[in-house]
Nucleic acid binder design. Structure first.
Lengths: 126, 126, 126, 126
DNA sequence: GTGGTCTAGACCACG
DNA sequence: GTGGTCTAGACCACC
């Protein structure tokens, strides 16, 4: 499983892990029923603390995206989640776009970035 | 100045305040040279501590977006910032879009949201 | 880590702490990758509030000199900074030298002081 | 009297004014007995608040550098002062040099800056 | 009247 | 155990 985390980023590491796994699920690279690597192994691969990965898995479980079965690992449960409110997502979107606009990125370039990411995320869904 | 903060959100309050002000600047609702409300007044309006607003202002000052002059208040200094790397913005964008896709939001609706926000942010720039 | 602060001085304490750490880094007494003491411990050592040290660390982080990782402490990241403009540094230098000249300090003695400090600061850079 | 202040700098404006006048005195451009401009006029020239200039004059008077006579303006009293302790000056010098070193300025260039400033300050003294 | 700094202490987030 | 955030309130510095 190809995941990269960066300790210097603003987002906490556990959330980076969770977000990357979410992206893999959304892209269809992790299908329903697929097994996730054991916590210890993923932690070792990423060079992070075991608790960090465990927290990420717990978050994904809380959102209903994965199922953790004691003693037999974790697997992808579903491609649907609804925990984050529409309003909160909109605020997050606005914050990101604001950042890009203030950084001087032209609107056309932002549009290209967005559609590029969207294409990657939705093609696996069909 | 219309700003809303939510103590329940993950983002710290001082960053919510800073982000909202950034959006107002990006939108052109706060022009260069415009005065910001005194920290104590904004703190009272938002129902938060003085220091929380002061921290937000300090962050904006550090990014070069506002100029604070001791004894005479704060004003908008610029509409440009460069603190966040392109790569970090891209990752943040991907995380938000992933969230939306997994929430089951159709691609067309996401596109509408994005362009709506973008329109609000870039029209003030002309 | 030997740091001394003086509450009577004009410079705020958090900046004194940051300045002292900067000097330790410039001197090479704190190498890149070295750990800084936990905020609470340094605060206790100096007899100041936790927040005061946290503010100093945050300032150093903003200048890129240290990296703070939530949950696992702070470490020296770099020996380079670029925040202060050349012109501002020159003006500050002039102010200090003016002070010394008006205090009646002979030019030769000032030169000795300067080269002594400079030697301490640049020898670690070899 | 050629004085420039910058509201964005770290030093408070009143201190910038005081420092600039000190430099003029140290350089010999303001001789003993010379009159200083009226507070109101200097404030108008600099575009700053009247109280700011008054505070600067008060500081200079406190250091014995100028004499303020009620109703007849201020004049340069002496070129000697001793209010700032040797230790505090040394600390200020160290902070400036640390800044320069961390900004990557080579030792040779710093030396040139220092001797250039020193030459300007001490030539008027002979 | 404006912002700046500091404290003491509480509680949370992260690894 | 580490840093982060917030509060309430005091006092200072600046314009």
């Amino acid at each position: 499983m190809r995941i990269i985390v960066d300790a210097q980023e603003h987002r906490p590491i556990y959330r980076q892990v969770a977000d990357e796994i979410k992206t893999l699920i959304a892209r269809g690279e992790l299908q329903e029923g697929a097994s996730l690597p054991p916590v210890r192994q993923l932690a070792a691969d990423l060079g992070v603390n075991l608790n960090t990965v465990a927290t990420a898995y717990r978050e994904l479980q809380g959102e209903g995206l994965i199922a953790i079965r004691h003693g037999s690992g974790a697997m992808v449960a579903s491609r649907r989640t609804e925990v984050t409110s529409r309003d909160e997502m909109r605020k997050a979107l606005r914050a990101v776009l604001t950042q890009m606009v203030l950084a001087g990125m032209p609107r056309s370039e932002i549009a290209v970035l967005v559609s590029g990411e969207l294409r990657g995320l939705t093609q696996g869904a069909k």
